[in-house]
Design a protein around this nucleic acid. Structure first.
Length: 314
DNA sequence: AAACGTGACAACCGCGGTCGG
DNA sequence: CCCGACCGCGGTTGTCACGTT
């Protein structure tokens, strides 16, 4: 369409913003709103192009932006959303309150991408790329296997939903972004949120130093997780006061709510008594989590219904 | 202390979609 | 319907801070 480059105008400033410029932009928008970005710079007394102003506002000056390090919860959420959505940063950002798409994109490129690669996971496809040979091989493999299984699961579910309701696939870059997100929440995003519930109870320790338990939820998956089942096959009777009371004889022991606690020293305490909440001496197993994969993963299956497999993420 | 390398992230660029005349 | 202006997105680059040699 032959558009002129936005920031090539004569006399327009480029590069890092000064405090003075920030003040001018902030003051103008707080007073008048941004209106047309094209005309804003002149009105605000800035020698910048509208595009540059918009970017500065959206990615830096906006008052509702949350800055600082990403929490483990946010990181997990990014990974899961990326597995489902790919590089649709704006959609991913819509599900991480107060984070910008640019910030998430940068964080992905500089942190998460490298970590996944190191774990032997292709950050684009979320599939395993090679065998691991680190000292944490066992744990790393579990993590990788689960990551892949989870990705496959979300992908298959999303595809199934798409096949059932193709017309519901909203067009990208909808002008009305809120509407767009709402559609995805109720439709495309559902599998992802099922998984994400696992992290919603918080992370690590509380302010007073007490261990904070996780609230776990489970995603039924049709994906074969044989490798993981073999690794952790221990038959135990499982009975809890929680939502899965009716499930007995679970292959693996990690199953009820509130009985897994992540400690600061990268270990996980697991209650074997199935009571949850209270980790009684003698009924606790200690489990090392790989140095960087605090999404250390486990699954268990229900012997009464071998077809039903669950994934647990913490 | 200087040069160099690396990581983090802010900022820019070009493309495609949307809207209004 | 067409076309140009505008906006928003994702990929890429630039800049700075910090660590290492």
């Amino acid at each position: 369409m032959g558009k002129s480059p936005c920031c090539s105008g004569v006399g327009l400033k480029r590069g890092p913003w000064t405090q003075e410029e920030d003040k001018k932009l902030l003051a103008y928008i707080q007073e008048n709103g941004h209106g047309s970005w094209r005309t804003l710079p002149q009105k605000a007394g800035l020698k910048r192009c509208g595009k540059s102003c918009r970017l500065r506002w959206i990615n830096y000056l906006r008052p509702d932006i949350k800055r600082g390090e990403f929490t483990a919860y946010e990181e997990q959420r990014i990974i899961q959303l990326h597995a489902l959505l790919g590089n649709r940063w704006s959609v991913i950002a819509a599900h991480l309150p107060n984070r910008t798409d640019n910030e998430i994109k940068n964080y992905w490129n500089t942190h998460i991408k490298k970590r996944l690669t190191k774990m032997g996971i292709d950050p684009i496809t979320h599939k395993k790329t090679h065998n691991l040979s680190s000292s944490n091989e066992g744990m790393m493999n579990l993590s990788v296997i689960h990551h892949i299984a989870q990705w496959e699961s979300t992908r298959l579910e999303a595809e199934a939903r798409l096949a059932q309701h193709p017309k519901n696939l909203s067009a990208p870059h909808n002008k009305n972004s809120n509407e767009n997100v709402a559609n995805e929440d109720s439709f495309m995003m559902k599998p992802s949120f099922d998984i994400l519930k696992a992290w919603q109870s918080g992370y690590g320790n509380t302010n007073n130093g007490a261990a904070q338990p996780y609230t776990l939820s489970f995603l039924e998956s049709a994906v074969s997780m044989l490798a993981m089942r073999e690794s952790f096959k221990t038959t135990a009777t499982w009975s809890t006061g929680h939502a899965y009371d009716n499930v007995k004889n679970v292959d693996n022991i990690w199953s009820s709510q509130n009985d897994i606690v992540l400690q600061e020293d990268n270990k996980v305490l697991i209650s074997e008594d199935g009571i949850g909440d209270v980790l009684l001496p003698g009924n606790v197993r200690e489990l090392n989590i790989g140095e960087e994969n605090y999404w250390g993963d486990f699954s268990f299956s229900n012997n009464n219904n071998p077809e039903t497999l669950y994934s647990v993420v913490f």
